[in-house]
Amino acid sequence: MKEINMTALEQLFQAKIEKDIKIEPKDWMPEAYRKTLIRQISQHAHSEIIGMLPEGNWITRAPNLRRKAVLLAKVQDEAGHGQYLYSAMETLGESRDKSMADLISGKAKYSSIFNYPTLSWADIGAVGWLVDGAAIMNQVALCRTSYGPYARAMVRICKEESFHQRQGFEIMCTLMKGSKEQREMAQDAMNRFWWPSLMMFGPSDADSTHSQQSIDWKVKRYTNDELRQSFINASVPQAELIGLTIPDKDLKWNEAKGGYDFGPIDWEEFRQVISGNGPCNAERIAARKQADDNGQWVREAASAFAEKRSAKKAS
């Protein structure tokens, strides 16, 4: 289908993609490319905003002043990253309000990982180390995505996120050097967050509906399975170094492929969580809705004030 009936514009577009020339907002692009980007960037933005909630859950209970400040700064970065991404999405002609409304109505998706609860302080370590680690794996690849504004947002985000994973791993290291209770707390967090972190890369390539087209358009640069494998290869030695056990009895180094073999992922759990039946889906959406509702009169007030003032200036 792609070879025949290609218009001149489409050929020009495809030629740019092949030569790794970035697509910019006002350039012609196939409607399906625009839609794919809007879907992916908005999901990404929503994930940043919803992602503030599980970690925000521990800011007021952070164990000391240093950890409190670090966690505040980290969660704040996520609000910033959400904004960078919404801005990139808006260059494609989609409004942030509409996108936000889709999030609140449950229509839009976001990363399934944020529907898991943070039950102990160690979870903050696990989220920073594993969840941010998985996200960074994905995001570094996206710095070379074909759409200019998305790529630029990702470059900025990756630069800022470099401290996120480190602070999480530092929490885990400190816990593993601590008391028996602290080590158990860390292992428990590891047990709960390991598999959901692997699910963050999305369905396996064989089952992913969007993957191939996104790869052809260079929206995605690596497949879900490739990224998942890189993440496992990077994380296993980190866990071993500090004495954490990976909760996977099938995990084994495979010399031939130069990576770890690992046990089956529970895709039924993934499907349930992504379709709204995870442990915290309802709470996450409710929190976002409440924040949005609480902000309604504030946004109106600021708009009304701006109008009054420009009317005054004009007269």
């Binding site: 704040q76 970065d77 904004q83 808006e90 942030r96 900025r156 600021a302 004030f305 701006a306 003032r309």
Partner: peptide, 21 residues
């Protein structure tokens, strides 16, 4: 980059918080 704000002063304020952290 870009951002949302009701007026110019708030835009500067938001830009300070968003882009110069």
């Amino acid at each position: 980059g870009s951002l949302h704000a009701p007026d110019a002063e708030m835009a500067v304020s938001n830009a300070r918080d968003l882009y110069t952290r």
